[in-house]
Amino acid sequence: MITKIIVDAVGLVLIVLIAWYFWFSRKKGEAAAVSGGVQEAYIIVKGGYTPDVIIVKAGKPVRLIFERREASPCSERVVFKDFNVSRLLPEGEKVAVEITPERPGEYEFACQMGMFRGRLVAEAG
């Protein structure tokens, strides 16, 4: 009996941990570097986007350079649906995506299946 209670308690704790880890914890973002008037960030695509939250200033052009370091076809494209941009990411190649978030807000980017996600956070400049 006592084993069952312990096992179930552990199960419940695990569930809470999973829900917290995947859904409720907030990720910290990485600010984009500014070079030559363009805000730049370098993103590695491997099992996800690293970094996956990019903080930029609204109204200024942003260049995101993606490098895909895996062969999994899931991540072969990156889609910015708010900007109607979608790029093929050949493995091992650097692909630049240039967009300008005109208004402050959060813009999501993802692979075409939506399994990998990242956010572009545009702050009022």
Partner: peptide, 9 residues
């Protein structure tokens, strides 16, 4: 890789 990004597939 997914876990580090707080996602799972």
């Amino acid at each position: 890789n997914a876990f580090r990004h707080r996602s799972a597939d």
